[in-house]
Nucleic acid binder design. Structure first.
Length: 466
RNA sequence: GGCCCCAUCGUCUAGCGGUUAGGACAGCGGGUUUUCAAUCCGUUAACCGGGGUUCGAUUCCCCGUGGGGCUGCCA
């Protein structure tokens, strides 16, 4: 959405890495995320991105764009806030805080910092910190304040100061929390709109206060609905939920994912369901973003995938599946008719990886059993089989190479039905050629296979079921 | 528990005071087809409840209820 909005408004799409929690660092996570972005067709204008060689790089003159490289900045503004009396040093140890919270919970009170360290004089606090006592810096939330703000998609919002905790801004390891880093960076990087998940809504007043205290104008904010799992809970990487990168690995097309994600929480107000990235950029608007969270349900995703699969140009489709098929069937590699065969399965598969199985019968001699061919539904009895195959061999044998096409074959079969219905001939033909209960049509398969192979398989099958 | 957000078919959603409450996915039924897929047609299915406001509420307001988020020296 951020990307769509930035493109829609000719803005700058900036990628910044928020790596302030050193305990949650995951090696390779940045590359993976960037690769995922590249895959769906999103390219940052500024900040952290992949260079043509696939290496992580930074571009732009408002960097660095890794928060872990901006520590002095956060420290500076935290100090400014302390100086202005808007924040204070807190020396309370995690153990004490934990106990405090436990007690508050028992008393059925909201768990909030009890401001013990606010009692410290500034001199004492400065001295303690000079002596190396570990501490954090907390916001001094004005309890009597009422904070009002207008969110781009939720309208006017209201918060009471006394319900807000004295948020930690700078941790004892000198890393900032998200809150400080967000405000400092988005001011310095001149962000004009912040589009983020609804989960941040309750932190908004803190951010607003920080902008005010630092004398800065806050950006516009749009809090978008959360993506929910089947359990209606927020989707989260930490809970092992799936990332875009994993859908990429599963074989979904980038177009599918872009299309699907855009439709979750947004709609164009028309009945259009299929969108390219370009169309989304053209039509997207925050006003039409939903307020309620949307369940990430896979039913429609697969339908969309099928739609996009069929939109691929045949030549592209063929070259995408060729390596997969050739890996299993060497013959495919040198098959001059590969594209013709690929065409027959394009509308039948949802994922590329289904192709080899679907095309197996082209490259391996099928074995069609009498049971498969003598099918009750097709009104074919075993006793008729030899006559059916004789008819087929005669009729098809008379088709000259030049007329060995779907239309030519069709004409030949239809004029040579004899005592049989069309179905009584075509089902055995298709089954003999493929050995499968379902496959592309008999004429199409015969054409793709060519006359020689078709006749061969016909004779073989006729012999084996006697 | 406290604070905040939200609420139309099973799911994604349209609707912005008067509609036979529309579409899509899934489901079901059928057409087409040699099978399967694709495709086409049809069909089941929803305004969370209660109060207001109004001639009239799915729509506006309030209260419930339900769901979600936050409540960390996580983001």
């Amino acid at each position: 959405m951020n990307y769509l909005v930035s493109r829609r408004t000719n803005g700058n799409f900036l990628v910044r890495i928020e790596d302030t929690d050193r305990e949650r660092l995951v090696p390779g996570a940045v590359e993976n995320m960037l690769r995922g972005m590249t895959w769906v067709g999103i390219s940052p204008d500024e900040g952290v991105m992949l260079d043509p060689g696939g290496e992580v790089m930074q571009k732009g003159n408002r960097g660095p764009y890794f928060q872990s490289e901006r520590l002095p900045l956060y420290k500076k503004y935290a100090a400014e806030l302390v100086l202005k009396g808007r924040a204070y040093r807190c020396f309370c140890l995690p153990e004490r805080l934990q106990e405090m919270r436990k007690r508050q919970e028992e008393l059925r009170q909201p768990p909030m910092y009890d401001r013990r360290c606010l009692g410290l004089s500034t001199e004492d606090a400065a001295l303690k910190s000079k002596n190396g006592a570990p501490h954090v810096i907390r916001m001094k939330i004005p309890h009597e304040r009422r904070i009002t703000f207008t969110d781009e998609i939720r309208g006017e919002l209201n918060f009471q100061g006394h319900t807000i905790d004295d948020q930690v801004l700078l941790k004892s390891d000198c890393f900032p929390t998200y809150h400080l880093a967000h405000v400092v960076d988005d001011h310095l990087m001149e962000t004009d709109i912040v589009i983020r998940g609804e989960e941040w809504l309750s932190s908004l007043p803190k951010h607003l206060l920080l902008f005010e205290w630092l004398g800065w104008t806050p950006p516009r904010y749009a809090h978008v609905p959360l993506l929910l799992g089947k359990d209606r809970k927020k989707l989260s990487k930490r809970d092992g939920d799936v990332t875009v990168e994993e859908y990429m690995r599963k074989g979904y097309l980038p177009e599918t994912m872009v299309n699907f994600l855009a439709l979750l929480g947004w709609n164009p107000g028309t009945t259009q369901e299929i969108f390219t990235m370009e169309e989304l950029i053209e039509q997207f608007s925050l006003e039409r973003v939903q307020k309620a969270g949307a369940i990430f349900d896979l039913e429609k995703l697969d339908w969309l995938q099928g739609q996009w699969m069929r939109k691929i140009r045949l030549s592209d489709f063929a070259s995408r599946i060729l390596p997969l098929v050739a890996e299993k069937f060497l013959l495919a590699k040198s098959d001059p008719d590969f594209v013709k065969k690929a065409r027959l399965i394009q509308e039948r598969i949802t994922f590329f990886h289904e192709a080899p199985d679907m095309m197996r019968f082209f490259y391996e001699e099928p074995r069609a059993s009498a049971e498969l061919i003598a099918n009750e539904k097709q009104k074919i009895e075993k006793s008729q089989l030899s006559e059916i195959f004789m008819t087929l061999e005669r009729v098809l044998g008379n088709v000259i190479e030049k007329e060995w096409t779907v239309t030519g074959l069709k004409a030949a079969v239809q004029s040579g039905l004899g005592n049989f219905s069309q179905g009584q001939l075509l089902w055995p033909l298709r089954a003999a050629l493929t050995g499968l209960p379902y496959s592309p049509g008999a004429y199409e398969v015969a054409e793709a296979l060519g006359k020689t192979k078709t006749m061969e398989r016909l004779r073989r099958t006729a012999r084996s079921i006697q």
